[in-house]
Computed example of a mutant assay.
Amino acid sequence: MVHPLVSIIIPFKNTSAYLEECLNSVLSQSYSHWEIIAVDDNSTDASLKLVQGFAQKDTRINVYPNTGKGVIQALQTAYAHCRGSFITRMDSDDIMTPDRLQVMTNLLLEHGEGHVAVGQVKYFSDRGISDGYDRYEKWLNGLTEKGTNFTEIYKECVIPSPCWMVYRSDFEACEGFNPQRYPEDYDLTFRFYEKGLHIIPCDKTLLYWRDYDHRTSRTSEHYAQNYFLDIKLHYFLKLDHDTNRPLVVWGAGFKGKRIAQSLTEKNIEFSWICDNPKKIGKEIYGHTLLSFQELDHIKHPQSIITVANEEAQKEIRAFFKQRTMRNMLDYFFLC
């Protein structure tokens, strides 16, 4: 029976309240051939002392100081010490289910290189989960169950940062943690997509994802909405934009304006449409806002959708379906 070494990368900073539960969830894994590479990102609480205590009791746990500052450099520091043929990440405030490593390892061994093992996730919080996180969880798990995550990659991050596993060879082919782009988990997801890795469907919950007010994704500027929009547009232009086709932007709210401004600064031509009668005919960034019916007069366009309203999105999808336009080829939802 093959038992490849799994390297579990855990960056941490001031999460002493949650680290013990996180590390114990790794120690409780049914799959035992793993190593933890934990990197302290300049903690000022008892986090480092706590992890060092675990490391003294189990030689599979290794602790290092961050050679720089911030989560990206912490991840880079950790990867420099990895020995495993499988690579995975874990956040220091989350909890693995007891079979997470076994399930993911089995999936990768069954499907081979060129694949990403992912798992269902479950949010939890002392104060309850907001409607937004609940909808995101259901949406994400629905994709993961079918392995269709990349079909919605431009909407939100479709691979949860603490719940994936890949072959080391594939990880390095995707440049690992080298790029200095935030949000770093979304950037890595796009690089998995860029290199043609395939998502392995999974219908099991493998991670309990903790939510609380001061988690990094809520407080750091690197996870603000504009960073997400910038990274979406970066990869759309790099991977899916057909420069031989007219480009159309839908929506003139914050997201639409951000995308339009970026395209204008890059000197990329586009048409701009919206369904707000008060905005149609106005000029912004040198572009006149048009009615969506104008799309029928544009030959073979590609469309970027920045309209966030769910009911409006359904109408837009129906509009495209009537014209036999296809998702991820003719239109892309960036919201």
Results as ranks from 00 to 15, higher is better:
residue 239 L to R: 01
residue 49 K to T: 15
residue 9 I to M: 01
residue 256 G to P: 05
residue 251 G to C: 06
residue 140 L to S: 04
residue 316 I to L: 11
residue 125 S to K: 05
residue 124 F to Q: 10
residue 284 I to T: 04
residue 173 A to I: 08
residue 131 D to S: 14
residue 125 S to V: 10
residue 312 A to H: 03
residue 245 R to D: 08
residue 271 S to R: 00
residue 202 C to Y: 09
residue 12 F to T: 12
residue 194 E to T: 07
residue 209 W to V: 09
residue 243 T to P: 04
residue 13 K to L: 03
residue 33 H to N: 15
residue 40 D to S: 06
residue 18 Y to L: 10
residue 200 I to M: 05
residue 99 D to L: 12
residue 266 K to G: 01
residue 64 Y to L: 06
residue 215 R to Q: 14
residue 191 R to M: 12
residue 178 N to I: 14
residue 199 I to F: 02
residue 300 H to S: 09
residue 133 Y to Q: 12
residue 124 F to K: 13
residue 87 I to F: 05
residue 129 I to W: 11
residue 320 F to T: 03
residue 264 T to V: 07
residue 261 Q to T: 13
residue 30 S to A: 10
residue 14 N to D: 15
residue 221 E to M: 05
residue 153 I to H: 01
residue 21 E to D: 07
residue 20 E to S: 13
residue 289 L to W: 01
residue 7 S to T: 03
residue 87 I to Y: 01
residue 26 V to Q: 03
residue 188 L to F: 05
residue 162 P to G: 11
residue 126 D to C: 14
residue 109 L to E: 08
residue 69 K to S: 13
residue 22 C to M: 07
residue 199 I to M: 14
residue 249 V to K: 00
residue 334 L to N: 00
residue 328 M to H: 04
residue 286 G to F: 06
residue 159 I to M: 04
residue 192 F to P: 02
residue 66 N to D: 02
residue 157 C to L: 04
residue 108 L to N: 03
residue 208 Y to Q: 12
residue 180 Q to M: 15
residue 297 H to N: 11
residue 226 N to S: 14
residue 329 L to C: 08
residue 242 D to C: 07
residue 29 Q to A: 10
residue 173 A to E: 14
residue 161 S to K: 01
residue 249 V to Q: 00
residue 285 Y to I: 05
residue 90 M to L: 15
residue 138 K to Y: 10
residue 325 M to G: 00
residue 289 L to A: 03
residue 195 K to A: 14
residue 300 H to Q: 07
residue 95 I to L: 11
residue 65 P to C: 05
residue 115 H to I: 09
residue 322 Q to P: 02
residue 326 R to H: 09
residue 43 S to K: 06
residue 97 T to H: 01
residue 142 G to V: 15
residue 310 E to S: 14
residue 222 H to E: 11
residue 6 V to H: 01
residue 121 V to M: 13
residue 164 W to P: 08
residue 26 V to E: 04
residue 199 I to C: 04
residue 112 G to F: 10
residue 50 L to S: 07
residue 258 R to H: 13
residue 108 L to H: 03
residue 17 A to C: 10
residue 263 L to Y: 01
residue 3 H to V: 03
residue 48 L to S: 06
residue 66 N to G: 02
residue 160 P to Y: 10
residue 38 A to Q: 00
residue 69 K to Q: 11
residue 287 H to M: 04
residue 251 G to D: 07
residue 1 M to V: 07
residue 191 R to E: 08
residue 170 D to A: 14
residue 214 H to G: 12
residue 256 G to Y: 00
residue 40 D to E: 06
residue 200 I to S: 07
residue 85 S to W: 04
residue 199 I to W: 00
residue 170 D to R: 08
residue 324 T to S: 10
residue 33 H to R: 08
residue 94 D to C: 12
residue 73 Q to S: 09
residue 219 T to L: 13
residue 288 T to P: 03
residue 154 Y to D: 02
residue 57 K to T: 11
residue 154 Y to T: 04
residue 258 R to D: 09
residue 277 P to D: 05
residue 308 A to H: 10
residue 156 E to H: 11
residue 24 N to L: 15
residue 268 I to N: 00
